[in-house]
């Protein structure tokens, strides 16, 4: 271990802990950050990626998981293109990592920004984020079917609020229109937090917010979940409201809407990173995952806790890219000219 004397104590403890409790990797990772690590969020404050990244920052600091500080920076310009290009242009700087949402694929496809995920070094998949169909709790629709029928009857005047344009929320909206023949007016907002507020304020009939973007409003009985866009219900049984837990939300498929969509919450780092450097971060996030704060975040946000690293991760991302290429093409969202 290349530690300065004053870090030996801490480092040794951390190494010991890592070796005994996790030991996914040799504990003597040869590389350690020598400067503050920039943690880029290619989205605005208050959204799902932001909440996750800031929670990680808190965990890393509180449990002293890194000898250097972690600085969280929002770079949301150009639908996240600002953040991705920043990391892409930082080749050889191992002190820069980025958390992703689907705009990893959709932004270059929709805008033609010269960027592809292969420009970055994949580190780890932390979790997959679910999507839930929400309506305002004052509205009478109790099931997805009632809602879809009402949307059809409204003759294309129902407003669907979502994050960004030609991104995951709009992709799901497109899929919903195709599956039901109901027509929605998609209204893009800047971030997941703002989307949820639009729904609570009755400025939209529905949203497809991620669980942790809407959970605080659900707890207060302001919004109602209708179904989750996954193949099986979410596993979390703890009650969120007086009567419901995440696991009580039916899948959309069971409600006659055959749509599945999960979003990557993963970590990438700057191009040209060495294996040691990637391993260091994999190890770091392994430690993050063992903390009680992380478990709270997973439970509160009802995440799908799939974890991948290395080749599995890269293959998964490549596959996902192909799927998005198709989805974007079908929806007519691909960049032209």
């Amino acid at each position: 271990m290349t530690c300065s004397p004053k870090h030996v104590g801490l480092g040794a403890v951390a190494a010991l802990w890592a070796a005994t409790s996790l030991a996914p990797l040799p504990a003597s990772a040869a590389w350690e950050p020598s400067r503050p690590v920039e943690f880029i969020i290619p989205a605005g404050p208050g959204g799902g990626a932001d909440i996750m990244a800031r929670t990680i920052q808190g965990i890393v600091t509180k449990h002293n998981l890194m000898s250097q500080p972690m600085v969280v920076i929002n770079k949301s310009g150009g639908a996240g293109g600002e953040g991705f290009l920043d990391v892409k242009n930082s080749a050889g700087n191992p002190h820069k990592i980025i958390i992703t949402l689907s705009n990893l694929f959709t932004t270059p496809m929709a805008t033609g920004i010269p960027f592809n995920w292969k420009d970055l070094t994949p580190v780890a998949m932390l979790a997959l984020d679910e999507f839930v169909l929400w309506v305002n709790a004052e509205k009478p629709w109790k099931t997805a079917k009632e809602f879809v029928d009402a949307a059809k009857a409204a003759n294309g005047t129902f407003r669907m609020s979502g994050t960004g344009s030609k991104q995951e929320d709009q992709i799901i909206t497109e899929a919903l229109q195709k599956a039901t023949a109901a027509k929605f007016i998609y209204i893009p907002q800047r971030g997941g937090g703002a989307v949820a507020v639009q729904l609570v304020g009755n400025h939209a009939e529905s949203t497809v917010n991620n669980p942790n973007e809407a959970v605080s409003h659900w707890k207060a009985d302001k919004v109602r979940p209708l179904c989750v866009f996954d193949s099986k219900p979410m596993p979390y049984k703890a009650k969120i409201t007086a009567t419901m837990s995440w696991s009580d939300i039916p899948t959309c498929k069971s409600q006659g809407l055959d749509i599945e969509y999960l979003m990557l919450r993963g970590i990438f780092m700057s191009p040209g990173a060495t294996k040691d450097q990637v391993d260091y971060y994999i190890n770091l996030f392994n430690k993050v995952r063992q903390t009680p704060e992380w478990k709270d975040l997973m439970e509160n946000g009802a995440f799908n806790q799939t974890v991948m690293t290395g080749k599995d991760y890269a293959d998964w991302v490549a596959n996902e890219e192909k799927r998005h290429q198709q989805l974007m093409k079908d929806a007519g969202f691909l960049h032209t000219n």
Partner: peptide, 18 residues
Amino acid sequence: AVLLGGLLIWGLQPGPLL
């Protein structure tokens, strides 16, 4: 947004029930 970041780090999620 700074304050918001601080709240999240302490595990306090802003919302109607805060």
